[in-house]
Amino acid sequence: MILRYTFQRLLMLIPVSFSISVVIFMIVYLLPGDPIDNLLRVGSSAEDRAELVARYGLDRSLFVQYFVWIGNMFRGEFGDAIVLRRPVADLVAQNLPYSLTLGGLAFLFSSTVGMALGTISAIVRQPVLDRLMRGFILLGSTVPGFWLALLLILFFSVNLGWFPVSGAGGWQALVLPVLTIGFGGVALVARVTRVALLDAQREDFVTLLHAKGLSSGTILFRHLMPHALLPVVTILALRIGWILGGAVTVEFVFGRPGLGSLLIRALGQRDYPVVQACLLMLALAVMLGTLIGDVAQAAMDPRIREKKS
């Protein structure tokens, strides 16, 4: 059942990724000026130009060019970076692990810490805690990520000297970036967990479990948690794209290597082969993340599987 659902969702990705890749492919053509000039560094020789035209089939129709381009992308041949003068594939391979580490840790941080805080506040039942969480959610969704990052640098790195200001050396360099991205997520996950647990506690079967004499701890972890997990997984699945967006900003601020900072630098320098490769990778990451989230949700809730298949 779940395999079939996964397969269906994978099929749905084909038109989506096709459309996205067409948009990204068209970037070079929609720019003012000759697309070949946009892909060549200034002062390139006529041979360089001829070589590029031959490699991308630039003398053929746009339709053919797209398929040549996407074929190259599939084989990992992203072309050469104009400004950095290196194969784009190398740049991507070098930067991708940093982005994955940062995104993965931020995801882990917001899910585990968020769920733990939510569970605690559901047990303690202090309205103050709930109001505090609401405040943090508001802050997390309104305060620009890069500003929060700068304030954290100012406080923890400059004043206290606990963490490095920028760079990617050692685990210390990861603390502030992960905190910045995870900040809003923790509060959101905590609140959803809390509400889900409190809702589940009102179910009849919980009263029965209490009547049977089970301990509160057993009821919470064995019976309530599985119930509460579904909305949490839903919100986490929605959060994946958000975390990737946050990673783009945060990498740039902390001067960390990564796809996001590579993309922004390339945009500023109009290094279009790099821009295209980065956008394609990020779009793929968002789509895969959403897919994993959807499948996880369907695995837990048969209603979703049935509705869609």
Binding site: V23, I24, M26, I27, L30, L31, G241, W242, L244, G245, G246, V248, T249, L263, I264, L267, Y272, V275, L279, L282, A283, V286
Partner: peptide
């Protein structure tokens, strides 16, 4: 994410 859509557009 909105920032990614915006970046694609700024790239164009």
């Amino acid at each position: 994410p909105d920032i990614l859509i915006a970046l694609i557009f700024v790239a164009i």
